[in-house]
């Protein structure tokens, strides 16, 4: 029987530092939220509690952006260019790169970082790579918590995940804005959108514009497909991330425009509820879900809670329904 450890204040302290926008708290924060020891889980709950909308007096100001797409589409290289553009506009950036891991050994080669140029003396940029772990959906177990913890401190928190088809939904749950990245010549995205497997993203990016005609026609096809689905709001943007980069400023503007038009509290609240359910499911499994009367009932219960609660507090309301 494991005793529930009492908190040492580590999590709360980190939370307070992030609330003060102390960016140097980021590495330790990630070390904490990634840890699965009972003591650290407890500290993580304290951390997130410090950063709940109730404590912040509103939603965290950072813009959480999900960047997802098939392997090799050019996501990390694009981030490299985007990071430069954001930093030039004076915005601080945290990158959470989630890499698929090897099923056989449990280990993984975290390759995204290598593609993102950074100035090692730049304190306004933080890059962390994490292995996706067992869970489907392209997110590492700790990524939601990390995004929630960093959004109060950084101007932009961007999450890179590998996703094709349905698995983007996870990142859509955490992010304010979701961009799907495809490279020219890959018909997949078009097929997924047409067949409704993939939800229409907020922004669709076609990379490798430097490849010329093929990139242009990819962009045209995607725009046409979206129009035929009536998804007129989705912008399709064509970029090249290799020197000389093109389209990057347009993309930054498109992100800003989406965020400006967004009902942030609604989207964030949905994100916290989805996260709570996902965390609960990891901890208690399908049996736990049944105990609370199924997914719909769980979401209904979560919907009745105070909208300013943090995720661990929401998980706790579900836990109360599980018979001891």
């Amino acid at each position: 029987m494991i005793e529930t450890p009492s908190s040492t204040g580590r999590g709360a302290q980190l939370g307070a530092r992030l609330r003060d926008r102390d960016l140097s708290a980021a590495p330790a924060t990630l070390n904490l939220v990634e840890s699965r020891t009972p003591a650290d889980l407890r500290e993580t709950a304290d951390l997130l509690h410090e950063l709940s909308p109730a404590k912040l007096g509103g939603e965290a100001p950072g813009h959480v952006i999900g960047v997802t797409g098939p392997p090799g589409a050019g996501k990390s290289t694009l981030l490299s260019a985007l990071v430069r553009a954001w930093r030039e506009r004076g915005r601080t950036v945290a990158v959470l790169a989630v890499d698929p891991s090897s099923k056989r050994s449990g280990g993984s080669l975290l390759g995204d970082r290598a593609r993102i140029d950074f100035d090692p003396s730049d304190r306004g940029l933080f890059i962390r790579s994490t292995a996706a772990g067992e869970r489907l959906g392209g997110l590492a177990p700790a990524t939601r918590a990390a995004a929630q913890a960093l959004a109060p401190a950084f101007d932009v928190v961007v999450i890179e995940t590998v996703g094709v088809g349905q698995s983007e939904t996870d990142v859509a749950d955490v992010a304010d804005t979701v961009a799907v990245i495809v490279q020219p010549g890959s018909g997949d995205a078009l097929q997924f959108i047409k067949s409704g497997i993939m939800e229409t993203p907020d922004v669709l990016v076609v990379t490798k514009a430097d490849l010329g005609k093929i990139a242009l026609s990819a962009r045209r096809d995607l725009s046409a497909a979206l129009r035929s689905l009536g998804a007129r709001d989705t912008q399709v943007i064509s970029v090249s991330s290799v020197p000389p980069p093109t389209g990057i400023d347009d993309l930054v503007d498109a992100f800003d425009a989406h965020r400006a038009a967004l009902d942030l509290p609604v989207r964030r609240l949905a994100a916290r509820r989805a996260a709570a359910l996902a965390d609960f499911a990891v901890e208690y499994g399908e049996r736990g879900i049944r105990a609370v009367g199924g997914r719909r009932a769980a979401l209904k219960l979560l919907g009745e809670q105070d909208p300013t609660l943090d995720v661990p507090a929401l998980v706790a309301t579900l836990e109360q329904k599980v018979p001891a």
Partner: peptide
Amino acid sequence: GMDVVYEGIRLTPQQIARSALDEG
């Protein structure tokens, strides 16, 4: 079974230290 960060060749000592810090 380890998680591995390998960024390729030609890094400065400062870049290595920064990666080590950020990556935990």
